[in-house]
Structure formats: structure tokens, C-alpha cells
């Protein structure tokens, strides 16, 4: 979805949106503004912060308990010697996840949302001023566990990663199309449990994802026994490299679903940023 006025109008929905009935004494003003424009504006601002600090930001989304924090722990163990990583944690209550991440020796900041079921760009903006972005290569935002609302909010991040644990059922992409359509990468987690489940087929899960016209790659992994972790780490390092190359050309990265929206609806936003350091030269 794009973030400026009027550009959401496409050949498909134009007749619907343009239909106006004139009435006596009433002035009809055509607006055509995205309802999320306030959030999207803040998200662009966040992205400019991230780009100025050259830090790739990954938004991790899934149901509660599908293994986001365990994935982060395993990832940090593998990468903490070579990359500077930090995590923003979103939960309704407790700082449990932040403590788990901090125990791995990397900075973490907890956003407790109270009753809110998702993070938005404003919450993330408040959090990012608690982290020394200039010292980072990679920032994970662990969204609130929820397969519905988080998908609708741009946080200013660069990539969406959606986890699906094998205990949840392989039809989740068909049941939650808004969420899974947003995925730049789908991770199938807890594969160490597959031998105990006769009703989860990774290939069915992949097929349900592809039915959403998604060409996102799928990686099956287990944080417990390490299976599939190499493929995930390779994906991450490639993403960091691609992102750094884009920055050198004064461009930024956006989740694929947003790029599609822009191609469809309008010109890309004018996000300006000024790189502050060359701290990630070792990656390029």
C-alpha cells in the first residue's frame, strides 16, 4: 500500500471510489487518502533513521509461541562475533523476552504495549532512541505474537519475516492471507517436532503461501537441533549485503509488498537520508 494521497486508486477500484452522488446543500470533497497515512509517515521517518545508521531492520511476525525469541537466541549465538545486533521486543506484558536476548550479550529494548495487539511506527520510534543505532549492523523487531494486526502496520523496517511453527497447521497461510502475503521470507519453525505430527506437511504450507501469489522463499528450521539454521543465516547475510549495496546508491530497501504497492499505485516516497559512517565495510 502506498502512503500518499490518491495513489491507491487503481484501474480495478477506480469506479468504486470515484462514484459520487451530488446532493443539495452538501459539498462533496474528494480526499483519497490512505487511512494509515499517519503511521506510514512515521514509518518513513523511522526508515530514514535506520538508513542513516546503515542498519538492516527485520520485522519478525508470527503467532504467540511459534519460536521467534528462540530463533533470535540461536541467531545471535551464530552471529554475535561477526555482526553487531540488537533487538526491539514487543509484548503486551513482561520483560521476559528482553531478558532472554540480553542474556545473549546484545542490547534489547522492550516495548510493552499493554492491550495493543501490534507495534506501530510511533511505538518503534520511541524505542529506537533507546538504542545506539550507529553501532549496529542488524536490528530485529520482534512484533507482538499475532497473525492479524501486525501485518497492516509499516514500522519503517526493510524486510518482513513470518514464522509458522509445525504445531500450528499447514493451512495458516490460507487462513491468514493478509499476514502471509506480507512475508519476504516464510520460516517453518520447530521442525524437530515433525516426527510427532502426522498432519503438518511443509510442502502444503509452501503451496498455501504460493497460492497468495507470493514468491517468498521458505526455510524450515529448528532452533533446538540447528537444522536449517545455515540457510537462514545465509539469507540474512545476503539481505545485509543487498541492503548495503542499495545504500551506496542512495536507495533503501522496503518489504516486497510495499514495493509492489508503489509500482502499482504511485511514485516512491522521497525518503532522504545521510549515511553517517562506514562501519559495515567488512560486510561489503
Amino acid at each position: 500500500m502506498c502512503n500518499t494521497c490518491g495513489c491507491n486508486i487503481t484501474p480495478g477500484n477506480r469506479p468504486l471510489v470515484m462514484a459520487e452522488k451530488p446532493k443539495n446543500g452538501v459539498t462533496t470533497v474528494s480526499v483519497l487518502q490512505n487511512l494509515l497515512s499517519q503511521n506510514n509517515h512515521q514509518a518513513d521517518h523511522n526508515r530514514a533513521h535506520f538508513d542513516a545508521s546503515k542498519v538492516l531492520v527485520i520485522n519478525l511476525m508470527s503467532s504467540p509461541g511459534s519460536g521467534k525469541t528462540a530463533l533470535l537466541e540461536a541467531t545471535i549465538k551464530r552471529l554475535r562475533e561477526s555482526l553487531k545486533i540488537a533487538v526491539i521486543e514487543g509484548d503486551l506484558e513482561t520483560e521476559n523476552d528482553t531478558k532472554r536476548i540480553q542474556a545473549q550479550g546484545v542490547p534489547a529494548y522492550q516495548i510493552t504495549t499493554g492491550t495493543a495487539c501490534h507495534l506501530d511506527a510511533h511505538l518503534v520510534h520511541n524505542a529506537l532512541h533507546h538504542l545506539a543505532l550507529d553501532n549496529l549492523d542488524l536490528l530485529f523487531i520482534e512484533n507482538v505474537g499475532n497473525l492479524v494486526c501486525p501485518a497492516s502496520f509499516d514500522l519503517g523496517h526493510h524486510r518482513n519475516v513470518v514464522l509458522l511453527s509445525v504445531t500450528e497447521g499447514d493451512d495458516k497461510p490460507a487462513k491468514y492471507p493478509v499476514m502471509f502475503r506480507a512475508a519476504d521470507l516464510m520460516l517453518i519453525s520447530k521442525t524437530d517436532l515433525l516426527p510427532y505430527l502426522d498432519d503438518f506437511s511443509p510442502s502444503n504450507a509452501e503451496q498455501n503461501l504460493h497460492n497468495l501469489a507470493s514468491d517468498a522463499p521458505v526455510i524450515a528450521f529448528s532452533s533446538k537441533d540447528g537444522q536449517g539454521m545455515d540457510a537462514w543465516i545465509t539469507w540474512l547475510l545476503t539481505e545485509i549485503k543487498d541492503y548495503q549495496a542499495l545504500l551506496l546508491n542512495q536507495k533503501t530497501q522496503r518489504p516486497k509488498i510495499q514495493q509492489d504497492g508503489q509500482l502499482l499505485h504511485a511514485q516512491p516516497g522521497n525518503t532522504k537520508f545521510y549515511p553517517v559512517s562506514n562501519k559495515t565495510e567488512h560486510l561489503v
Binding site: M1, N8, I9, T10, P11, G12, N13, V17, E20, K23, V26, T27, T28, V29, S30, V31, L32, Q33, N34, L35, L36, S152, P173, A174, K175, P177, R181, N208, H210, N211, L212, A213, S214, D215, D260, G261, L264
Partner: peptide, 27 residues
């Protein structure tokens, strides 16, 4: 949840309507 072409079943499709959330007009 099935964004495939109805003619050729391809999943190489582009969404042209269905993800909008727009304030269209105000009277």
C-alpha cells in the same frame, strides 16, 4: 487466500484491487 489467475492458474499475478484502505470522499 487464492490469488491465482483463473484462466491459466499461474501465481505470477499482481494485485490491482483489494488491499486499499482509503478515505475516498467527505460530504
Amino acid at each position: 487466500n487464492r490469488l491465482l489467475c483463473k484462466t491459466c492458474q499461474s501465481n505470477e499475478t499482481t494485485l490491482i484491487s483489494g488491499d486499499e484502505l482509503i478515505l475516498a470522499s467527505v460530504a
